[in-house]
């Protein structure tokens, strides 16, 4: 999926970012980018997805949060933000209402913390679950209550 021209222009002029699939954006500008994209007509939120990358020599232990938005019918843009473990990324709930449940789910499963989220609780797993199962370092044998 190629990035539409006006988005490429927007990225270059306003954010100084390279276009791509996905676009990588820094944490302090992700809300601004989301708002700009929404203004540009990308009002459809496709998904928010996170993935965990354990620490390597070059990078610390971190997660990536990817947002994909769409301008109907076809244009699609994905932008991602890297979040070191233990730190947080600003939430996009004020921009896209749908980020509410999406970010909650990713917080629950991957453990990415979205700062300013109105209701950052677990959504899939029980409230007292320990750990975030989709992290690469999650021990599959983690003990939990037998009825869960």
């Amino acid at each position: 999926m190629t990035v539409p021209d006006d988005v490429t222009r927007l990225l270059a002029e306003r954010f100084g970012l390279e276009s791509g699939d996905p676009i990588t954006v820094s944490r302090d500008r992700v809300v601004e980018l989301g708002g700009a994209l929404k203004e540009a007509g990308f009002t459809y939120l496709v998904y928010v997805a996170c993935a965990h990358y354990p620490a390597t020599d070059a990078e610390p232990d971190r997660t990536v949060a990817e947002y994909r938005v769409r301008r109907l019918p076809v244009d699609e843009v994905a932008f991602r933000v890297w979040v070191p473990t233990g730190e947080s990324t600003p939430t996009l709930v004020p921009v896209f209402a749908g980020c509410d449940w999406q970010e909650r789910e990713q917080f629950d499963l991957v453990g990415t913390i979205f700062a300013g989220h109105p209701d950052l609780r677990r959504i899939m797993l029980p409230e007292d679950w320990e750990g975030h199962p989709l992290r690469r370092d999650y021990d599959i044998a983690t003990r939990h209550h037998p009825w869960r």
Partner: peptide
Amino acid sequence: AKLAMELGVSGPILRASGIDWDLRRDR
């Protein structure tokens, strides 16, 4: 429809709200 799009609602629900969009036809 506007709220539905922000929430990422799709399929028949979106089409019943007046958004003429179908992946089968558009992509």
